[in-house]
Each structure stands twice: as structure tokens, then as C-alpha cells.
């Protein structure tokens, strides 16, 4: 089975005929891969969570994201071919979402950064009339819960004990450099420079507010930079991502053409 055309970062699929609308495949892949990869990471927590309620909550978020991923990847092609048969360099997710779970604080920091971004993005998409509007309108409700969950835990851990404060601070700082990528333009998403700038500023306000309530310091390191931390959208990923995909794709690839 050969990977479909859509696995190459062409930006848009070829029109079906003269005058047919150009479908934003690259954008569907970018958002779909974000959801797919973060869902996978959260799924790794199953059976390892610090408290039973979090087994339920983390699985819930993972399931919401997997549902979003399936809709988005299906907009771009066959969901399973896209998930299981692309090579690492063909994935378009943010580097942030592929970062390993680390301790619970890292998982929460990653979720806070991503859900805050995803909520702003989907609110924007839901308000428009583009191809992502229906999905975004539904997803916004789910994401609001994810963000709320991450915010509550950020505050609990930041405020709780010296140990939890230190761990939460370390996690927020470690992941900070992956957050600039979220506001780079994505082809076919229909968000102009001005909108992206406004989203970024709203993201900073929101995250600064949460960290403040948690008694944490807003990291002062770069949020992108010369070596381009955050080039996931261009298919450049971090080392742990290849291992994640190896595990995720192994069984599917071992039985070419099989149905499950």
C-alpha cells in the first residue's frame, strides 16, 4: 500500500475539476496531526496516572483529540493510511505536542500551552465560514474543558507544595521554547498575519494569567529562534517523535493491506 498523495506537503489538493474549490489539505493535516499526536501521548498515561480521577480525565481528553484527528485526517485522505503509513518527515504537527509526557507537571504544562492555543484557534475557525467551521464549533466545547483541566492543575501544582511548585515551574520553562511555532501561518487555514498576531497576544495574556494565579514565573526564554525550535509544521521533528511513531505504526505496517 503506497502512502497517498496527501502525504506530501503540497499545501492544497489538486482541484477535482475546473472551478472546484481547492481543499486545504495541508491545514487539515496540520490540525489533524496535532490532535493525533497529542492524543497518543495522553494515551500513554493509561494505567500510570497519579490518581484514578486522572485516569478518567486524561483518557477523556485523549479521546476528544482522537475524535478531532479522525475527522480532520479524513478530510485530507484515508485516516489510517495517514496515521500509520506516513514517515516522520511527512507529519505536520507542532513539536510541542510530540514532546514526551515527562512527569505529570510536563503533561499539564504541554496541555495548558496547547489547549489555550487550540481554543483560540478553533474559536476563530468556528466564527468563520471555512471548511473547518463545523468541526471547530463542536471542538471548542471539548477544548474549553481541556484548558480548564490544565489550568486547574497548573494552579494546584504551582500553589501546592514546594516540590510541586518546582516541578511545575521546570515544566513550564522547558516547554516554553516550543510555543512560538503555534502562531506561524499555516497554508490553507485562512488566518492572516493580523489575526495570528492577535491570537498570540491573547495566548500570552491567558497563559500569563494562569501562571500568575499559580504563583509561577512566566519563562523569559525565546519562544522560537535561530535554530528554529518549532519546525514541526515543516516536517522537522524532535528525536522522541520517531520512536513514538515506530511504536504507533508497527503493528499496522507489519500486516500490509490487512483490515482491522
Amino acid at each position: 500500500m503506497t502512502p497517498p498523495e496527501t502525504t506530501t506537503p503540497t499545501g492544497t489538493a489538486a482541484p477535482a475539476g475546473p472551478g472546484a474549490p481547492v481543499f486545504p489539505t495541508a491545514a487539515a493535516l496540520a490540525l489533524g496531526d496535532d490532535a493525533l499526536v497529542l492524543s497518543h501521548r495522553l494515551g500513554e498515561w493509561a494505567g500510570h496516572a497519579p490518581v484514578l480521577e486522572e485516569e478518567v480525565a486524561l483518557a477523556n481528553i485523549a479521546l476528544d483529540l482522537l475524535g478531532q484527528a479522525r475527522v480532520l485526517l479524513s478530510m485530507a485522505g484515508d485516516e489510517d493510511e495517514l496515521a500509520y503509513l506516513r514517515e516522520e518527515r511527512a507529519f505536520r504537527n507542532l513539536q510541542l505536542v510530540e514532546q514526551p509526557n515527562g512527569d505529570f507537571a510536563h503533561t499539564i504544562a504541554r496541555q495548558l500551552y496547547f489547549s489555550t492555543y487550540q481554543l483560540l484557534l478553533h474559536a476563530e475557525l468556528a466564527a468563520g465560514d471555512g471548511p473547518f467551521a463545523p468541526l471547530a464549533a463542536k471542538a471548542v466545547k471539548e477544548i474549553a474543558y481541556h484548558r480548564d483541566h490544565a489550568e486547574q492543575w497548573t494552579v494546584r501544582l504551582g500553589d501546592g507544595t514546594d516540590v510541586s511548585h518546582e516541578r511545575m515551574q521546570r515544566a513550564c520553562t522547558a516547554l516554553w521554547r516550543f510555543t512560538g511555532e503555534m502562531f506561524q501561518p499555516v497554508e490553507g487555514l485562512g488566518l492572516d498575519e493580523k489575526t495570528l498576531t492577535a491570537m498570540e497576544s491573547a495566548w500570552l495574556d491567558s497563559v500569563t494569567g494562569v501562571l500568575g494565579r499559580a504563583g509561577l514565573t512566566v519563562p523569559d526564554g525565546p519562544r522560537g529562534g535561530a535554530w528554529a525550535a518549532g519546525a514541526g509544521r515543516q516536517g522537522v521533528h524532535t528525536e522522541p517523535f520517531g520512536r513514538m511513531l515506530a511504536e504507533m505504526q508497527h503493528l499496522h505496517r507489519s500486516h500490509p493491506g490487512a483490515s482491522w
Partner: peptide, 20 residues
């Protein structure tokens, strides 16, 4: 993490969540 299709992965995650 090794479920061979996204549909099966969703079913399995939901099941393990039900057990919790």
C-alpha cells in the same frame, strides 16, 4: 499505543477509561 487502526484505538481507550 499500538492499536492498528484509529477506530480500534478509540474503542480501546474508551474501554480502558470505562474500567477506571
Amino acid at each position: 499505543t499500538r492499536a492498528p487502526s484509529l477506530r480500534r484505538k478509540a474503542i480501546l481507550m474508551a474501554k480502558v477509561q470505562d474500567e477506571a
